[in-house]
Computed example of a mutant assay.
Amino acid sequence: MNHNNIILSLMQKHLLIVLFFLCFTSTFAQEKTSDTTKNVQPQKKNIDFNVMPYISYNRTLDFMFGAIPMMMYKTNKADTISPKSLSGITAIYTTNKSYFVCSFNKWHFNEDKWRAQLFAMAGNQNAQFFMDDFDSSGFYDYGTQTFLVSVSALRKIVKSFYGGIGYSYAHYDTTYQEDIQPASVSHTNGLQMILLYDTRDAVYYPTKGSKIRARWITYPEWFDDVNANKIISEYNTYISVRDKKDVVAARFAGKFGLGNISFEQQVTIGNDDIRGYSEGKYRGDGLMAIQGEYRYNFHKRMGVVGFAGVATIYGSDTPSFDWKLYPGAGVGYRYRAFKNEKFNVGLDGAVGKGDWGLYFRIGEAF
């Protein structure tokens, strides 16, 4: 049995266990709710646990399905100021034979004076990219086996202002259809300097305030085979028009690649900013995007969103794509994943310039 079949077999076994556990816990919860003969007040749990199914579709990856077990908890029960921390695992398989297993963690410590994150991913992505040369133009398939881990820590300096450092390691093994480009095996070590200004009233579902974050990521030549830098900036702001019913959110994002940016390090419209692009056509060394979103809660555990935005890129392998405007707009559905915390999962549908996409969300888009 080859490596891919072993991983797929393990994922299928874990999914069966997760689905069985989900059915069991759902039945137990229903039985517990229906028992009205007991008047004992349940103790408030420190850990909220849930398993969400993952079902989506992408024009590049095709149908995607999997499971997301996750939990929210206090790192210290006596800490009434820190938001709850979040940990989870995502296991996804696609019908174009891609697979991903991810672990995501966000921690808040010591009355929110410290914040830390840990993300790890292993998988194989079978995707496509667009290439325009003198002989022909079109989409070409490629496959990348990836292992990635990223860790960061922030310390509050003054009220609402944080500073910190981070480190990321990535290993890529990429092959291309018809040898349109040479196969490559590479790794990167990124050192990060992070600044954050955060006045949001909640980290998972803000209704007012702003978040400004800037990251400088360097891939130094003494640490890597290439010498490159990235500047990643974002500004998010939130306003509630009707108390506890809706939120108007706006975002500007800038991702600037400097130096020898590799194919795997490039940014693609549709991955993080400006939904509606799933073909992987518009990619380059840098990206700028602005967008807005309206979030309406029609039920205590359900809501809908509408969004629109526009992006531009530079440093594309197809120069005619540089500095053009790429709009996107769509709608989505949200469901509150935890009873005691406003944290949503959902599904978005969006259209872009000659493209469209479906997006399963863990948390809000921004």
Rank of each mutant, 00 (worst) to 15 (best):
Y167H: 11
V203H: 06
F161V: 12
G123N: 03
D132F: 10
K113L: 10
Q145W: 05
E111T: 12
G123K: 09
D224L: 04
V149N: 11
T199G: 03
P182V: 05
L118R: 05
P182W: 05
N126E: 07
P206C: 01
T146W: 01
F134N: 13
T207S: 14
H171F: 13
T188I: 13
I212L: 11
V203N: 09
E111Q: 14
V226I: 15
Y142S: 08
D198H: 02
N229L: 04
F129V: 03
V226S: 12
Y169F: 14
M131N: 09
Q192C: 07
K113C: 07
Q128M: 12
D135R: 12
M131C: 03
A116H: 08
G123Y: 08
F129A: 05
D135K: 12
Y219S: 05
D112V: 00
S150Q: 15
G164Y: 06
D173M: 11
P206F: 07
S150W: 03
D132Y: 12
R115E: 13
Y172F: 15
T199D: 00
T218R: 09
I212K: 01
F129T: 10
T199L: 00
T174C: 08
N124L: 15
T146H: 00
T174G: 05
Y142N: 00
N229G: 06
I231H: 00
L196T: 14
D225R: 13
F134R: 09
R155W: 10
Q117I: 08
S136L: 04
R213N: 10
D133Q: 10
F130Y: 15
P206T: 02
W222V: 10
F161C: 09
W222H: 10
S184M: 13
N126F: 05
F139W: 02
S210C: 11
R155M: 09
Y172Q: 07
V185I: 14
G209M: 00
V226G: 06
V151H: 03
G164C: 10
G163D: 02
I165K: 02
Y169G: 04
D198E: 04
Q192D: 13
F161Q: 02
G166V: 06
M121C: 07
G123T: 06
L196E: 15
A127I: 01
K208W: 06
L196N: 15
A116T: 14
T144Y: 06
